[in-house]
Design a protein around this nucleic acid. Structure first.
Lengths: 345, 345
DNA sequence: CTGTTAGCGCTTTCAG
DNA sequence: CTGAAAGCGCTAACAG
């Protein structure tokens, strides 16, 4: 158990800057400067050092560099809910951008547990990450992870409650507008709105966006919002109830693809044709659902991958020394039209 | 020398082991031993050091520790397809286990691109990760990421083609057996099998498991396998075709929940009752589908989270110096019975 | 038991 | 322009 790990032999051991310096016949310090282009070094020696480095397949040791220099070349990605379908795309976008910039990302999934989160935050800070990205799975605002942290922090999807922090989140108000406008534009006038829990911001925001459009709308129309859950089950049951009550409807605006899927199911069970009799639009543009339904589901895409990429971009600059902005920045949604609203003429 | 200690900005600079030692009135080395429990230290001084550490909110610097000790306390998680639904649970399980062991994980998503993957591997090695976990999204074997790497490597889900490597993957043969046995046990005798592409190992393995059971089975029965895709669309169309042809069926064994969902749809469209007329079983136990269907779907769970955790565990030991085993180790699947096969008596 | 002394690999003054 | 030397914070031999 307590055996010491055998030292790696010289041909296995990665070569150090010292090896390079020795081979190039210069001092350690000079080799460092030459390789980093930091200080004044003659072209001749620089070339010599670079050759040596190449010959030895030298790769700097980030640990050592980090220790002496203070920057680790790593960032922390702190997610509260990896399993949910919102964190992942954001995380992928961010990872993509960081990877391209030779920054490595530490993944931390707090699983919605505050204690765990605290633990991860200290771990990240202890590791001297250069920045932290906090990703949530709801658009409700959250408590900031700390004040006066020694590194830049950005909040994605879930904005920070502190307006001094920088947060990036989808513009759900505009998303709601986009959805209702699409339905109105395709001639629908009797619209039901199935959304998630009343107290959740995403539901509220979209409802607000919809209301804005309705307020401006000239045409006579019927509209009603039902709050519930984000689930397929709720989509099915609420839609069924509505139909049972004989409500006249020619479009259903669902605030998640899962709700929409449930609604589609309920409609079909009653022989109601989509989109001929009723148009259905969802939210999230979740491929697995949107392409699996019958007909394929029109949906609003929050461009989460892009959001993650942007966030990474911002952190990049902040690490470079630029001050991070403050406040909540909203990002655009995108309408993806599919069979569930497109009338086959 | 030690007369006037310059005031340090204690609230800005994280306290170091030196601070702790000084405060506890012991030497640096002693403090280190006391905190690590490594060497013989009197209980009294250990307590004193621990108090000091607590008081100063001391958190060791992993960079420094790594530098001197040779271990970085980090591992690389190299996934080829984060988006797919198999990598994520594995990754979560692994992250969970590593996090508990104070190891941080670097996430790298190669997106199925070999160049990208190579880039990430060098990056990970440059960072001196202590181990690498390679996660794929198919059970087909893959080329190893390299020979004689300086750190232990484990392959999860996607086994390495090199038998000298250690690979962990679900036992799909047993999974197939489990599924068919469940159907037989519930009295089904006319069974159709809808699976993915013929050339994919997961499809082949499960089909093999099924064949084993059928070979041993005494009872007279009808069985047929249809290869296709893993999608809902394929599930619906193949099931529809089968019904159209008038094939007599009292159970459908689907090798993915998506296929099963499509099949359920096709059945319902024809007014065939599940599970009364036909039982349906899926694979993957993907919550979003399994709980959304009507009735809920019986499914085989590959215990991916556990698989990730196990893999992390193995790497842990390997980092500790224990040699890593070789070969492919199979992990158990688990049957989760729900309404789609459970007869309501 | 405890303190001292080397490093780990690299960056960075500060002299030459 | 280059080299020598002082750390970064920590662990691990080796003395006391």
């Amino acid at each position: 158990m307590n055996e010491t790990i055998p030292p790696r032999d010289a041909n296995t051991r990665p070569s150090t800057l010292d090896d390079v310096a020795r081979r190039a016949g210069v001092s350690l310090g000079t080799a460092s400067k030459a390789l980093n282009g930091r200080d004044r070094v003659s072209d001749a020696t620089r070339a010599r050092v670079e050759d040596a480095a190449r010959a030895l397949a030298y790769v700097g040791n980030p640990l050592a560099r980090g220790l002496s220099q203070g920057l680790s070349g790593t960032v922390g990605l702190l997610t509260s809910d990896l399993e949910g379908r919102f964190s992942l795309p954001i995380l992928m976008g961010a990872e993509d951008r960081f990877g391209a910039g030779r920054v490595s990302v530490f993944l931390c999934d707090a699983r919605g547990d505050a204690i765990r989160e605290q633990h991860y935050i200290s771990a990240l800070l202890a590791r001297r990450v250069d920045a932290i990205m906090v990703v949530g799975s709801k658009t409700d605002h959250r408590a900031p992870i700390g004040r006066d942290l020694p590194v830049p922090v950005i909040y994605v999807y879930t904005p920070s409650q502190d307006p001094r922090d920088l947060s990036l989140t989808p513009d759900n108000v505009a998303g709601g507008r986009m959805a209702i406008e699409h339905l109105l534009a395709s001639g629908r006038r009797h619209i039901a709105h199935l959304t998630g829990p009343r107290h959740e911001r995403a539901a509220a925001d979209r409802t607000r966006g919809i209301a804005q459009v309705l307020a401006e709308s000239e045409t006579q129309l019927m509209f009603e919002t039902a709050y519930g859950e984000w689930t397929e089950r709720w989509g099915r049951s609420s839609c069924a109830m509505m139909l049972e009550q004989g409500t006249k409807v020619d479009a259903i605006l669902c605030d998640s693809d899962q709700i929409a899927r449930g609604a589609l199911d309920a409609l079909r069970e009653r022989g109601i044709r989509v989109p001929d009799d009723v148009a259905v639009i969802g939210f999230d543009n979740w491929d697995i659902i949107v392409e699996g339904t019958h007909p394929p589901l029109t949906s609003i895409d929050m461009n989460l991958g892009l959001l993650g990429r942007h966030a990474a971009e911002r952190l990049f600059h902040a690490i470079g020394g630029a001050p991070l902005a403050s406040g909540i920045e909203l990002s655009d949604c995108r309408l993806v039209v599919r069979g569930s609203t497109a009338l086959t003429i």
